[in-house]
Amino acid sequence: MIAEIFDALQYAFIQRALVAGSLIALNCSFLGLFLVLRRFALIGDGLAHVAFGTIGLGLLLHSHPIYVSVPLVMLASLWILMISEKAKIHGDAAIGLVAALGVATGVMLASVGRGFNVDLFSYLFGSILAISRGEVILSVMLSLVVLMVIVLFMNDLFAITYEEEYARVLGIKTRRMTSMLTICTALTVVLGIRVVGTMLISSLLIFPAVTALQVARCFRTAIIIAAASSVLSVVFGVFISYLFNLPTGATIVYVSFLLFGTAYLCGRLF
């Protein structure tokens, strides 16, 4: 088995899957913890749906879908925030609204543009095994940016997440922080879509966070557990899917679920 794992590591596509997958998962785990605690976790799902629409636009314009998606999904994420603040619509409703618009845009563009609907649908599931070198480099760079932002603003984000108004009285620019968090989420979602697809991206955001919340007694541990469980699920997911000839994306989700189950039991027992 060990030998087989070493065999697997010989292949560049496995190496790429591990590197890009772990980094994106790591981002997702940090962002997910804040989002889950702020009851805003579904924004990942919503933005993934928006990305579906923007990828449709990218395909229509014959440019690389990521280049079109990154700015547009960022704008959409800010728009979700704006709607939920200004228009007296709750966060979940705002997400649903923007997500529906995104999907409608995708469907509309697919219909107008004709002939790329299958390509568009390949983004629903993504493929962690079919990442190109350019995508790995892009993922690594953007992941590092997001990680740096999170590490630098960790305490600010923690304060806001626990109590937003109090954070404002501490002089933290809460609105700016929230925008930054959602923009980072938008970036990560667009990257993640290429890797795990629209369908699985919210599992990368939510699973590590809820796993950590089962056992963590303090925030530092929560961050560490979330990060560890996200990277573990990608690494184990890739290897298990290699060893047992299973689809990789789904295996990653199952490993995440297994880790969550273990954490849940630990949380109950101890």
Binding site: V118, F121, S122, L124, S127, V238, T248
Partner: peptide, 29 residues
């Protein structure tokens, strides 16, 4: 649309290397 498994891809890579195959075909659309 569904993902192929990593093992399958690895096998194909090995097979192509062994047999000296220099082309892979893909479908339209």
């Amino acid at each position: 649309d569904a993902e192929p498994t990593p093992k399958r891809i690895a096998e194909l890579i090995d097979y192509m290397k062994q047999s000296g195959m220099k082309a892979i075909f893909f479908e339209e659309g």
